[in-house]
């Protein structure tokens, strides 16, 4: 196993950890806004780490660039859907959670 493969594996594991954290947040956070926060922030970072790990392992530069494009597309679309869901919740009158 080369050093490059080790780094790629570490990045993949770190990415999976962020996905797990995002999913725990989705299940455990109290309201729609905080859940959105957990999902979009943690998952975008997790996907970035996984993409970085896969890019190190990719056969060619073109393949690595394609992975990068996928990441940026997912980032734009997830922040957009996050905004849309949060706006819809706000318009529907969902009050943000406050610690009592």
């Amino acid at each position: 196993m080369t050093a490059l493969e080790l780094v790629a594996g570490a990045l993949l594991c770190a990415g999976a950890a962020f996905f797990l954290a995002g999913t725990v947040g989705l299940l455990r956070f109290p309201d729609v806004y905080t859940r959105l926060h957990a999902l979009t922030k943690a998952d975008n970072l997790g996907l970035g780490l996984i993409v970085a790990g896969l890019a190190l392992d990719a056969g060619s530069v073109a393949e690595a660039l394609q992975l990068g494009i996928i990441w940026s597309l997912v980032m734009v679309s997830s922040s957009l859907s996050c905004q849309l869901v949060a706006r819809a919740a706000r318009r529907a009158g969902v009050a943000p959670w406050r610690r009592r």
């Binding site: 597309l73 734009v76 679309s77 922040s79 957009l80 905004q83 849309l84 706006r87």
Partner: peptide, 16 residues
């Protein structure tokens, strides 16, 4: 039209 990030982001995504 919304004056928020939604408009900007959709302008980024729709050409894609």
């Amino acid at each position: 039209p919304a004056r928020s990030l939604v408009g900007v982001l959709s302008h980024l995504l729709v050409p894609g």
